[in-house]
Nucleic acid binder design. Structure first.
Length: 585
RNA sequence: GAGGGAUUAGUGUAAUGGUAGCACGAGGGUUUCUGAUACCCUUAGUAAGAGUUCAAAUCUCUUAUCCCUUACCA
């Protein structure tokens, strides 16, 4: 018997060691640990971002440290306030609230500028007047060294002057950049005199026209981290080659400074991104889907933005469960989309109230309902709200002579293992009565329109009838759901399938649109719902995010869509139930 | 043709020189007023090769495969 040891992932182990050695403060002090989520406000967050968020947020919370939300708004050409708001909303929805005020890279532009001037004066940076094409040319290629710019060794005073002109808006876009003086022969292309600042004469969504130069990611990011007191700058694997530059810039600022004046040197650590089968995390692809109307906006329930998952009815808890289940590694794993659905079902199964709804209705007529001249009689039945939660209670639902049942629950010529309705077959109406089929009607095309049954009054509530004289109890194999035809509401229900047909969209042809699933959306109208939906009842749980989620018995998990109006309810199918019957066939 | 990473059952992930374990999936079964859920059983793995060692998933070397890098984007 071995005792359970908590397994620590590699980032936790790094932080553990740093705390012990006192890298960031007093040895053993965990509260200094500071992480951040640094999105550029240029689009909507997707589930890949959720992984980065949960990791950084998780580390800060685990150690009792601090978690910052920082907008990396260093490129005014691509950024908008709209995205700032949606990103904040997404983080709140996920339950990963940030500490303190929201941070903006643009708040540090002044400090960064001063440091850049310091670098120039230390001979570590210079203004380059080469054209973008020339700079690209001089950078060289993989396997071949680059060449020095003719401006590389100009006097610092000249660079300082020109840099000031760039800042003042006296220089046109593309005419000059500030570059770090590192090594044009480095095997790491990022180190070949990277651009630190470029001229952008575009108003910024926060600073307006105060600035005409904007810092590049590599220059800005480490400084932002340092200014905020970030200890662990966690990012994805593609930034591994940028780490030497991240470190170089901090070291360059600290060069010649006393220990007291030196700025914090955060530790960048990289982990693998999330990939999920049948999806693509590329922002470019997503943008194309939206702009070319392959989907209905950024929150189309078939997309993988957090907004779309929210609209589809996914819970933040299930997304966290899934993402955390992937683990933190440096291996580029491909997660099965089914696993996300599994996490969702686990969560929803425990928490959703059960309801009955018929998606593809046909009529069931109970022919012996009015035997005593009371055909219009409507009885009220107790229906259990959630078998997984005994505190969820019951609700009353009506039952009468005519009901709606699912078309798929009747077969004219059923196979033996079909546990539903057919001539001479008996099933239980969930929380209703047992009914036995004796006839059916079909239209000119051969579509079944009505199923005729008799009911057994001894099975009220769906319970087993009393034993016969020999002590035998009659049993039924199947239970089907239903809705009372005289007392129900109509609704539109949207069924979603995966957006792409292939596991790796675009892998084969290079164009993800080739792999689009044209049947990913099915809109069902005229669906029949039990009347309890019409208004929010006391036995309906309140979800923190305001979404109304349900399980429709036997058909799946659904939520009320924002397109619902007073007169017409619209539901999204969040996920189906697992269906081993479908699999068998 | 360079540099940086990575590789453990079908998938994901542990084991940090000392018993290869867990979860999901899949297959089978039990229970069941959801063909759901729950429960039980089964399943299968260290990319290949060499070396060091009493002992290697773990250290070394070679090979293979995959990912990232050639923006005045982040």
């Amino acid at each position: 018997m071995t005792e359970a040891v908590e397994q620590r992932h590699f980032i936790q182990q790094i932080i553990d060691a740093d705390i012990e050695s006192g890298k960031w403060g007093a040895p053993g002090d965990q509260s200094v640990i500071t992480t951040r989520f640094p999105p550029e406000p240029n689009g909507y967050l997707h589930i890949g971002h959720a992984k980065a968020i949960f990791i950084s947020h998780g580390m800060a919370r685990e150690f009792g440290g601090k978690f910052n939300l920082r907008f990396d708004d260093t490129n005014p050409a691509k950024e908008e306030v709209e995205f700032v708001e949606s990103i904040k909303h997404d983080l709140e929805w996920l339950g990963t609230n940030w500490d303190g005020e929201v941070c903006f890279a643009s708040d540090y532009f002044g400090q960064m500028y001063d440091w850049a001037v310091e670098l120039i004066n230390k001979g570590l940076a210079y203004v380059d007047e080469s054209t973008p094409e020339q700079i690209r040319e001089m950078r060289g290629k993989v396997g071949a060294a680059g060449t020095d710019s003719p401006f590389r060794d100009r006097p610092a005073s000249e660079s300082v002057d020109l840099f000031a002109q760039m800042k003042a808006g006296e220089i046109e876009n593309g005419k000059m950049v500030l570059r770090a003086k590192i090594d044009m022969a480095s095997t790491n292309l990022n180190m070949r005199d990277p651009v630190m600042y470029r001229v952008v004469n575009t108003p910024h969504h926060r600073t307006g026209d105060e600035w005409h130069i904007y810092p590049m990611y590599d220059w800005a990011h480490g400084l932002e981290d340092s200014i905020e007191g970030v200890t662990n700058s966690l990012c994805s694997l593609e930034f591994q080659d940028h780490r030497p530059l991240y470190d170089w810039f901090i070291d360059a600022i600290n060069k010649g400074k006393s220990e007291d004046d030196a700025i914090r040197h955060p530790q960048q650590t990289e982990f693998s991104r999330l990939s999920i089968s049948y999806t693509n995390m590329s922002k470019r692809y997503m943008r194309q889907l939206v702009e070319e109307n392959h989907v209905d906006g950024w929150d189309d329930p078939r997309m993988i933005t957090l907004a779309s998952f929210r609209r589809r009815g996914y819970t933040p808890e299930s997304i966290k469960e899934f993402v955390v289940g992937v683990g933190v590694t440096k291996f580029n794993a491909m997660m099965d989309f089914g696993r996300l659905e599994g996490a969702l079902r686990d969560d929803l199964n425990k928490r959703t109230p059960r309801r009955m709804a018929v998606l593809d209705p046909i009529k069931l007529v109970i022919t012996n309902w009015g035997e005593h001249g009371d055909e219009d009689r409507v009885e009220m039945m107790d229906a259990i709200n959630n078998p997984e939660d005994e505190n969820a209670g019951t609700r009353e639902i009506p039952i009468g002579k005519e009901l709606w049942i699912e078309r798929a629950d009747f077969m004219i010529d059923p196979p033996k293992k079909f546990f539903r309705l057919g001539i001479d077959r008996e099933v239980r109406l969930r929380c209703g009565y047992w009914v036995k089929c004796h006839d059916f009607k079909e239209d000119a095309e051969g579509n079944v329109t009505e199923v005729h049954c008799t009911y057994d009054p001894n099975t009220r509530g769906g319970n087993n009838p009393p034993a016969d004289e020999e002590g035998k109890v009659r049993k039924v194999k199947g239970t089907i759901h239903w809705v009372c035809a005289s007392d129900c509401i109509d609704a539109e229900i949207r069924l979603f399938d995966r957006l792409y047909k292939t596991e790796k969209p675009g892998k084969e042809t290079g164009d993800h649109l080739d792999d689009l699933n044209n049947d990913s959306l099915e809109i069902r109208t005229g669906c029949k719902l039990e009347r309890t939906f019409a208004s929010v009842t006391p036995d309906e749980p309140v979800w923190p995010d305001g979404v109304r989620r349900f399980q429709f018995e036997r058909t799946g998990y659904f939520c009320v869509d924002k397109d619902s109006t007073d007169g017409k309810m619209v539901f999204n199918r969040t996920a189906t139930l697992r269906d081993s019957w479908a699999k068998k066939r």
